[in-house]
Amino acid sequence: MFNKKRGYIDLSNAKKNQAALDSEGNFSCPSCSAWISEAQKIQNNDFCPRCSYHFAVSAWERIHAICDENSFEEWDANVSSVNPLEFPGYEEKLAKAQEETGLIEGIVTGRGSIGGFDVVIGAMDSRFMMGSMGSVVGEKICHAMEKAIQYSLPCIIFCCSGGARMQEGMFSLIQMAKTSAAVGRLHEAGLLYISILTHPTTGGVTASFASLADIIIAETGALIGFTGPRVIQQTTGQILPPGFQRSEYLIKHGMVDLVQPRVEVRSLLIRLLNVHQGGNHG
């Protein structure tokens, strides 16, 4: 941490927001350590003006940014976790996550429209117990995919996850099989499935529904992989090259279709949905 250069942002643009700056406080970018204010972060669409680091956004922020105004209708809003293994401390962790995020679980699913195209959409929330997949996340994804088949709609999932939720043990591991099987049904029904891998997408989520889409979009700078970099280093002692497991690395190795900055994801989705609809030919 000592040889890391601390960068400073030119604050001239932000001068007029000085009041907001003072009241909301400054913080440093987790990627390049530049000092940023909350106001600047919002002004800049939630990424660092210096290094383009994409700050985490909540599931609802994601849905509002992607869907046409007032088009989203939430499904399974009240499906909530239980403690199937009576795992010590799990209820407390769930309650804390619910309080901190205002969410009941780590994913929001439903139906909405994007540029006028009707879609089934799901967005995971990394703030809810690291976006881990337990029974509820698995169930909501499967149910959303089954409804996509019922209504013959494309399915779009925004992924971010630390992996399986350990507190649910094998119930959580099996969600990988369950969601992958649901993707299989989407494919059989000939429906379009797009996954957007955002920072971070790792473990059981990457190794199941996230990597099984027709089109996989990685958000700029996102960490995407099966084993997280810390565990790789600890278990193998390997020194990881800079940029390892980042979106740009993955597209180079042929794992994703496109790398896009967050602000361009909506317009890209509209273009993809349009082409998949067959265009306007006679």
Binding site: I232, T235, Q238
Partner: peptide, 12 residues
Amino acid sequence: PGMGAEERGQAW
């Protein structure tokens, strides 16, 4: 859990 496995798409 190695680097090579990641490089060749373990999750995929």
